[in-house]
Simulated scan of single mutants.
Amino acid sequence: MSSPQQKQTSDLRSDGDLRYANLDEKKRKRMILNRESARRSRAKKQHRLDELLGEINQLQNDNNTIMKKIDAATQMFVGAESQNSVLRAQLTELTDRLHSLNSVLHIAQEVSGLTMEIPEISDTLLEPWKLPCSFQPITTSFNMNMF
């Protein structure tokens, strides 16, 4: 038979085994919970990364669209600037012609002795941007919905 001391030692072992079993069970459950939490965290990070990549693609598409609009507007500006240069050259040429015609009229008036009404060329005609103007709508082929 066993002695009382052996029985006490055996009871301690069985209590210790249960304690260790409970401790191992808690550890195992904690590991499972930690793994599940890590899996959820990785899934959440992956989802956020996918969202950011989608946002990057959208912003790049928006940027490309804006760049195309800028290029179109730049081309329209260059075209308008070119037309303005042509119009300025024509204005200069027509102004020179008008001065020449007025000179011819003055000479004809002196030679013939007749009095002619020769209008003076006003400065506002030579600088059309200073002309008083009524507000009239400007029609263009420019598509305002482009922007």
Score class of each variant (00 low, 15 high):
144 M>E: 09
131 L>N: 06
77 F>V: 02
111 V>S: 14
6 Q>L: 08
68 K>E: 13
49 L>K: 08
90 Q>L: 05
45 K>C: 04
141 S>Q: 05
25 E>R: 15
96 D>R: 14
58 Q>H: 15
80 A>I: 12
83 Q>W: 03
48 R>A: 05
83 Q>N: 13
80 A>N: 09
73 A>M: 10
10 S>M: 12
119 P>H: 03
118 I>T: 00
51 E>H: 05
36 E>N: 09
32 I>A: 15
132 P>S: 04
104 V>K: 03
36 E>M: 09
112 S>V: 03
38 A>I: 05
138 I>W: 10
147 F>C: 04
43 A>Y: 02
36 E>S: 06
44 K>Y: 08
99 H>Y: 13
6 Q>G: 03
50 D>V: 02
67 M>A: 07
4 P>D: 12
122 S>Q: 05
73 A>L: 12
89 A>L: 06
56 I>D: 15
41 S>F: 07
45 K>T: 07
62 D>N: 11
123 D>A: 01
74 T>M: 10
65 T>K: 10
38 A>K: 14
82 S>W: 02
115 T>W: 07
50 D>S: 09
71 D>W: 09
80 A>F: 04
88 R>S: 02
11 D>G: 11
144 M>S: 13
43 A>H: 06
29 K>Q: 14
71 D>H: 08
95 T>E: 06
99 H>P: 13
114 L>K: 10
88 R>D: 01
18 L>E: 14
124 T>D: 13
26 K>I: 15
112 S>G: 14
58 Q>K: 13
10 S>W: 08
55 E>R: 15
2 S>R: 14
74 T>V: 12
87 L>K: 02
55 E>S: 13
79 G>Y: 00
52 L>S: 09
59 L>T: 09
36 E>Y: 01
39 R>T: 07
46 Q>H: 06
127 E>H: 07
81 E>L: 10
119 P>C: 08
30 R>H: 15
43 A>K: 06
78 V>I: 11
118 I>N: 00
4 P>S: 11
123 D>V: 00
120 E>R: 01
81 E>P: 07
105 L>I: 02
123 D>F: 00
49 L>P: 03
101 L>V: 10
17 D>F: 07
1 M>N: 05
46 Q>P: 01
18 L>Q: 14
91 L>P: 00
72 A>L: 11
130 K>G: 03
104 V>S: 07
8 Q>Y: 03
128 P>M: 00
104 V>D: 02
86 V>K: 01
119 P>Q: 11
3 S>A: 06
47 H>I: 04
102 N>K: 08
137 P>W: 09
69 K>N: 01
129 W>Y: 03
52 L>H: 10
4 P>Y: 04
109 Q>M: 09
4 P>T: 08
127 E>M: 05
69 K>F: 04
103 S>A: 15
65 T>A: 05
7 K>G: 07
83 Q>A: 08
42 R>L: 08
146 M>A: 05
136 Q>G: 01
86 V>G: 03
38 A>L: 10
138 I>K: 06
88 R>V: 01
49 L>N: 08
21 A>K: 15
49 L>T: 07
104 V>A: 11
15 D>H: 13
38 A>Y: 11
53 L>K: 14
43 A>T: 04
25 E>G: 13
91 L>A: 02
57 N>L: 15
121 I>M: 08
55 E>N: 13
25 E>I: 12
